[in-house]
Amino acid sequence: MSAVVSLRDVHKSFGAVEVLKGVTFDVGPGEVTAVIGASGSGKSTALRCVNALETINSGEITVCGHKIHDPALDRRALRRDVGIVFQSYNLFPHLTVEQNIMLAPRSVKKLSKSDARALAHEVLEKVGLADKAESYPEQLSGGQAQRVAIARSLAMKPKLMLFDEVTSALDPQLTGEVLRVMEDLARGGMSMVLVTHEMAFARRVANKVVFMHKGKVQEEGPGAMLENPQSQELRAFLSNGL
């Protein structure tokens, strides 16, 4: 079966600075790919390119059959297939949890109010926050907010989920609840790409680990790769405790 995400020799510069210097990797259907690497190595940029939030300078990216590098890309169709969750949750502060989740299904998929509400409760159940439907984002803890952000994405029934360091802003005792939700998703067969600093999580949940170093994929392999790093760079990265 063909890959859900495939990057081929992707180059991306901001001004004169080349941030991605020929990135290539694939994500198979139902697979979880963890992208790791030092700060500034281009992980977020790669993820943003996958979701067409940045335009690439050269190379090819295909996501769920959509050619991201194609100027004629149908962004709306892409958005229907891909969900993304950011480190900073980005919930809409003027809407309740339930309204946050209902907004896109109602506006984009034209679901009726009652269908959208049922859907909101279904996804909230999935992230264990059914009782927070009426709360506003500011009333939530970081872990709860992030789970709502995940639920909001899931409500659009994406085929692929992208996560950019979704636990990095959280207190250590709150990361567990978010990682559990992601692990459930992975076990449910969702294709996922996650940028993460949680090495233990990557080792346990990811089918594949991609180690980025200075804008390139330095090393990739199964989770076990983290126990037996081949390259000097990965060894250094892992021993630095990050």
Partner: peptide, 19 residues
């Protein structure tokens, strides 16, 4: 980031602005 979040959920420019 609010624009971006709304964009990623598939809202069009008009919906992003007004909602």
């Amino acid at each position: 980031t609010q624009w971006e979040a709304a964009d990623c959920l598939g809202l069009n420019r008009f919906q992003r602005m007004f909602q």
